[in-house]
């Protein structure tokens, strides 16, 4: 078996949708038949377990596995209510990020890539140790950005770190492939000039776009239920995440939900959108 691919989901700024994205991308890859494990790197602020609906199965955590207080297998939770292919490793709730050692993280990730097709690292916010560790061993990065001035600025800073402070950059002198994921996008607010457009963000960050997730009320509902929004195939945000999975797997699917849905009589008559 060839080695699995490691993705980091990162952003710099907090609360932009990293955990929502990590959960949906991991669940989507698993449902597409890929054996996937998603790691919560937000040490001290465990959350991914809730979004995946497996908080009651947590016994051991990432830090315990790292410090060899348990076996790695014991810290891995099988999220089979979502998919037989989906696994997760919860963050520690009681300890802090100082326990994240370079050697420890390296050892765990190198074991995981032997067993899994995909390893998804849900980064904490900020540019400190937790975020640096989450990105260090990644093969590719998904940079989550909201169409908002401070989020775009922080993403640009994260891109700088991705270029310089990863294993790929330091050991192989390579640039880690970066994918831009715009979330909480509202085409109507873009049209009225209140919100940065996809084009605006692209002009500034200029990295390839892997998807645009619209603002959706269903995201909150999904969290409440512990079912990642990608499972909701009726909702535009769920569908947009499905498209992201396809693109990550190499399919070239067009962007959706990036224009205002025009339901006018004339619009329908001419079949345009």
């Amino acid at each position: 078996m060839s080695k699995g691919k490691v993705f980091v989901v990162t952003s710099g700024k907090g609360g932009v949708g990293k955990t929502t994205t990590s959960a949906s991308v991991a669940a989507g890859l698993a449902l597409a038949g890929k054996k996937t494990v998603v790691i919560d790197f937000d040490v001290g602020l465990r959350n991914l377990d809730l979004i995946l609906g497996c908080e009651r199965k947590v016994v051991f955590d990432f830090i315990q596995a790292l410090k060899k207080e348990c076996k790695l297998n014991q810290a891995i939770i099988h999220v089979k209510q979502i998919s037989d292919n989906l696994y997760m490793i919860p963050a520690s709730q009681t300890r802090d990020k100082d326990h994240l050692s370079h050697e420890g993280v390296k050892e765990i990730i190198s074991q995981l890539v032997e067993d899994f097709d995909y390893v998804i690292c849900d980064s904490p916010a900020g540019i400190e140790k937790g975020a640096k560790m989450a990105m260090y061993f990644a093969d590719e990065a998904i940079v989550v950005t909201n169409p908002e001035i401070s989020s775009v600025r922080d993403s640009d800073r994260i891109l700088g770190f991705l270029d310089s402070s990863t294993r790929l950059a330091e050991e192989e002198g390579k640039r880690i492939p970066q994918h831009l994921l715009i979330t909480r996008y509202s085409p109507d607010r873009v049209e009225s000039g209140e919100m940065l457009s996809i084009q605006d963000i692209d002009d500034i960050l200029s990295i390839p776009l892997v998807g645009v997730i619209p603002e959706s009320r269903v995201v909150l509902d999904s969290s409440n239920q512990g079912k990642p929004v990608v499972l909701n195939s009726q909702d535009p945000a769920g569908q947009a995440y499905e498209d992201v999975i396809k693109r990550l797997l190499g399919d070239d699917v067009p962007m959706r939900f990036t224009e205002i849905e025009k339901k006018s009589f004339l619009g329908r008559l001419f079949g345009g959108r």
Binding site: I149, V152, R153, D156, R157, G160, V190, S192, G193, E194, M195, L196, S197, D200, D203, I204
Partner: peptide
């Protein structure tokens, strides 16, 4: 000028500055 275009102008200046500073 829409507020989004003001945001974009500010970002362009700021980001260029921060990149060269790095």
């Amino acid at each position: 000028k829409t507020s989004a275009s003001i945001a974009k102008d500010r970002l362009q200046v700021l980001v260029a500055h921060e990149r060269s500073a790095n």
